[in-house]
Design a protein around this nucleic acid. Structure first.
Lengths: 236, 236
DNA sequence: AATCAATTTTCACTGGATGGCAATACCCCA
DNA sequence: TGGGGTATTGCCATCCAGTGAAAATTGATT
């Protein structure tokens, strides 16, 4: 975290994080976690509550409110990378049948899934948009830390999740790693040849994301706000 | 918005909303929207940036940051109603083939979709978790405003979206309307008999949500954090 | 009723938040 | 190139908004 100019806002945002992390929290717990006096925490929590970022349940404890959900979804729907990566991710899933993820650096030492296209196998890896995984020990994390050589792919077997093999390639904006494109596959289903094939596909698709032509409709789970609400699918 | 004890935090949260609403915004625009001096806005925006709630793009403008996405997703995954409603919503879609939505009151005069199970027809209504719709003019909105009689369903044809008919029933916590369960259907596909049938189904399923037994795996687009990442589907 | 912990209120105090203003940066046009 | 206009950033005097200790209130338990 960089130097922060407004202590009061800092404190309130920390409290917001605590409420969201814990899901349900009492005043004194939140105050303790934030290292604030209960009366200070109360006032700040009341401010968050006044704008619907948090709410109080029947027992007087604090839980996240609708405003944080709403702004989070808005933020995600406006994320340009999500739109740009849609076609590439769909192609990955079509070519491999495996779940495909787009992730960026998250808060602290984490990576954050910002788009997902699920695989088509009946046994497949499943996760969710908005999930954080550690930078350390994950393929996407290694890529986001700049550890892939010459834009190549990174493989992690037995990383942050058991029984899966993760392969990731960097989405580059110039020299900077903007995101990681990854596939996460049940380990029983991949040998070295398949890993290499998927790795090469990831590298190719990742390099198509920035500089790609203006996207059509995204096909990820984060549907575009402008999408026609009556969706017609192509015939099977 | 209720009376708010901490002006500084209020202002910062308003700025956060402005950045998320607009997607990309300059300092002076944000300051104008928030009715603040540019130097005050700068300082508050810097605080939001320091905790990754917003970030600056290459042109120095502000866009939402990963922290808001992360906390939004966390908040949603901890929302008890989403878990509770999963089975009911899946049953609705199985019985009708139409998209099913769970919504709660959002900020201001809005309703917020917090869970969605999409319909199975090739032409179906599509929307997204986190989307806000107006309370006025929508079936879910009417239900959330307490306008359904005796827990019955409300029908809106030609409401906030064209070409669709929305039917909603209240999810009650005691006497209080906790959420709205709704189906949104292309109007060409429903006559009065179908509307009545779906309406009655909605009422029945809505009444099963609170007081329902502990849920299994939610089947909505908001997967549970505890879900097994290797997902095995039943055979077709 | 007594005890304990959580929550809420009160209020003296001060330093953190403010915004006006100046400096700097940037863009556009003649 | 120079001028004009706007945006951004830094500085600093000012003051009141934010703080936290302490008291009061509430709620749960024995």
């Amino acid at each position: 975290m960089a130097e922060s100019p407004t202590r009061t806002v800092d404190r309130a945002l920390s409290l917001l994080g605590i409420v969201c992390d814990r899901g349900v929290v009492s005043l004194v717990e939140a105050a303790r976690d934030a290292d604030l006096s209960p009366s200070t925490a109360l006032r700040l929590l009341r401010t968050l509550e006044a704008q619907d970022f948090i709410r109080r349940d029947g027992d007087g404890r604090y839980t996240p409110g609708v405003r944080i959900v709403q702004l989070g979804a808005l933020a995600l729907s406006n994320e340009p990378l999500v739109a740009l990566a849609g076609d590439a991710m769909a192609r990955m899933v079509e070519a491999t049948g495996e779940s495909c993820y787009l992730s960026v650096r998250g808060a602290g030492q984490s990576a954050l899934y910002i788009a997902i296209v699920e695989g088509t196998h009946s046994v497949r890896h499943a996760s969710w948009v908005g999930r954080s995984i550690p930078l350390k020990g994950s393929a996407a994390g290694a890529v986001l830390r700049g550890e892939s050589k010459d834009g190549g792919y990174i493989v992690v077997k037995q990383g942050v999740e058991e029984d899966v093999t993760a392969i990731a390639a960097p989405v580059l904006a110039g020299k900077r790693v903007a995101a990681a494109l990854s596939s996460v596959i049940p380990s029983y289903r991949v040998g070295d040849e398949q890993i290499e094939r998927i790795g090469r596909l990831l590298v190719r698709e990742a390099s198509s994301i920035i500089g790609a032509p203006p996207p059509g409709s995204p096909t990820t789970t984060s549907a575009s706000p402008q999408e026609n609400p009556l969706r017609k699918e192509p015939p099977p």
